[in-house]
């Protein structure tokens, strides 16, 4: 199950990269593209937390989520 979860997390990250590129090209809004990428990265982080993660995995997921919150708050303030 762990291998499948890692694969799913990797696929989700790749989806995020492609989807944010599509948003950037179609809407020409870099902020929206960044927000989409961060959403997908959060999903990947959550997938990595499934099962029995190590302390390192927990710390990495927490860091990603904290950075995501910081960037999202920054984007909202600069709107």
């Amino acid at each position: 199950m762990t291998a499948a979860l890692h694969l799913a997390a990797l696929a989700t990250t790749a989806f995020g990269l492609v989807a944010s590129a599509v948003v950037l090209v179609a809407a020409r809004r870099p902020r929206a593209a960044l927000a989409v990428l961060l959403d997908f990265l959060t999903a990947a982080g959550l997938l990595r937390l499934t099962g029995e993660p190590s302390w390192d995995a927990v710390a990495a997921a927490a860091a990603v989520i904290a950075v995501r919150k910081l960037v999202t708050a920054g984007l909202r303030l600069s709107r």
């Binding site: 696929a11 989700t12 989806f15 492609v18 989807a19 599509v22 948003v23 997908f40 999903a43």
Partner: peptide, 14 residues
């Protein structure tokens, strides 16, 4: 559910 949501959103974005 999380993975299906990501796949669905990816398809819709495209």
């Amino acid at each position: 559910i999380i993975f299906l949501g990501a796949v669905w959103a990816f398809g819709r974005f495209l």
